[in-house]
Amino acid sequence: MNEHDQRAQFREAPEPEEGTRTTPKIVLAYIAILIVWGVGYYAWQIGKPLQGGDSRTPVAAEHQQSQPANVASSDTSQSTDTSAEEASSADNSSEQSATSPENSAATETAETEDTPSAAASEDSEAGSGSTASANVDGEALFSAHCSSCHQATGQGIPGAFPPLAGSKWLQADPNIPIAIVHDGLEGEIEVAGDTFQGMMPPLGGQLSDAEIAGVLSYARSAWGNDASEVSPDTVAKHKERFGSRGSWSADELTEVFGEH
């Protein structure tokens, strides 16, 4: 073993060791603050619902409320207006945690400046806010139960889920969409020139008559659709007539209710 065999070992600094500096006071203070915060965070969760959640659903709901029912009018500007959309949704989520009223006020004014029908949207916003208990909010129901497949734009997904915008099935005799939503649909169906092969689950067990009527009324008038409102009584009559039955097929629908 000569000097050349260990030149790297020879020139290096000693093995490291620890110094004796004491812990800075600010670190101790930080630890104390975090312990207090931890206890407070646990305590703050008492009584919170056991949703385990990341507040995703409440944000969506709040978003629906702060963005009035001007979907149809803002439909075309949607894709171009991406940045504004993002900004407003970011505001919404920060609201969720920090709750700053000025923030949401700013969002609203920004929106009303964007929209030509400012007065109309304010009206409908006030309406949808207060009607949550009395009336049914068809748009919110749609967003919760339908939009994951049929999309918020009502365009569906080509090849997988049929569009609702412009669908003749939806805009025909109200009994047809009631049957589909209440009892489900299975098998091949042709919508707007395309054939879909899929399955729609029955929602009769989850939605009340008024809710089915509300969501259908919304879908029948949104995205350029133009068909009559659906009343809860029609839904009740449908239930009387067919009771609880399995899914419909497109052929059965035509057979029972006639050509759409």
Binding site: R56, V59, A60, H63, Q64, Q67, V71, S74, Q78, S79, T82, E85, E86, S88, S89, N92, S93, S143, S147, Q151, A152, T153, Q155
Partner: peptide, 8 residues
């Protein structure tokens, strides 16, 4: 954007 229910 994903939190915005109206964005396709």
């Amino acid at each position: 954007a994903l939190l915005d229910a109206e964005m396709p």
